[in-house]
């Protein structure tokens, strides 16, 4: 197609390639990880409560251990707040729901724009705060890899461009919408090959750890 605009590209080929790479990469990682479950545990068998132990680990790992509670309270609360704010903005903005509906074939109720704008702003501010903390905090900086920084930036970009498109900041709406879509596409491509995969991996791996601990009689 000649004379394709940035928006046409972002809504067409860009989106298609990003989704293909996302689906391919995510399945690659998940299936690859599932094969690891077949690894034989050579330890002596101690306890037979696989499901209970697995689910328990999912819960206990969702809150910090008591000993660390005071030290990481900000991180703990802001981490939860950020995820909730992100989910509200992504999942309950009417135009987003229409996008998901076009792919999945079903929809759900949306929230008014003022709430979306608020949650989007909160999510953006919190992620920036968490990024700064990661850079400033000596321990966090030590355990951070390039993956952490790129992943945060790649998630920040859709948030910032989305808010800008919404508020008509930085350029004409169609330009900002195209940039927002391109930012989302960048995130989708980066997603399977980075720590962003935690969205799929967190709970299965906690469950797996729980059953593993149970098998070995670890009290955790």
């Amino acid at each position: 197609m000649e004379n394709m605009t940035l928006l046409d590209f972002a809504r067409g080929p860009g989106l298609q390639w990003a989704l293909w790479i996302f689906c391919l990469g995510v399945l690659w990682r998940i299936v690859g990880a599932m094969y690891l479950l077949g690894t034989k545990d050579l330890s002596k068998f101690r306890r037979n409560h696989y499901i209970r132990d697995g689910l328990r680990a999912c819960l206990t790992r969702s809150t910090p251990a008591e000993a660390f509670e005071d030290k990481i309270r900000f991180q703990h609360i802001s981490g939860y707040a950020w995820h909730i704010a992100l989910f509200v903005s992504v999942l309950f903005f009417a135009p987003h729901i229409l996008f998901f509906e076009s792919i999945f074939g079903f929809s759900w109720p949306h929230l008014p724009n003022t709430i979306i704008l608020f949650s989007g702003a909160v999510a953006t501010a919190l992620l920036i705060a968490l990024l700064i903390r990661r850079v400033v905090h000596p321990v966090q900086r030590l355990i951070s890899t390039i993956d952490d920084y790129i992943s945060i930036v790649v998630v920040l970009l859709p948030l910032i461009t989305g808010l800008a498109a919404f508020a008509h900041i930085g350029g004409r709406y169609e330009t900002m919408l195209a940039l927002h879509l391109l930012a989302v596409e960048l995130m989708l491509i980066w997603y399977p090959f980075s720590k962003l995969m935690h969205a799929f991996m967190t709970f299965p791996s906690r469950y797996q750890s729980g059953t593993f601990f149970g098998h070995r009689g670890v009290k955790a």
């Binding site: 989106l15 298609q16 989704l19 689906c23 391919l24 399945l27 690659w28 998940i30 690859g32």
Partner: peptide, 21 residues
């Protein structure tokens, strides 16, 4: 709603991914 292609193509990509995995 973008022109995101077809469900078949997405499932195909997922199948290739699973095979690679």
């Amino acid at each position: 709603t973008g022109d995101w292609g077809s469900r078949e193509a997405l499932l195909g990509a997922a199948a290739v991914g699973a095979a690679l995995g």
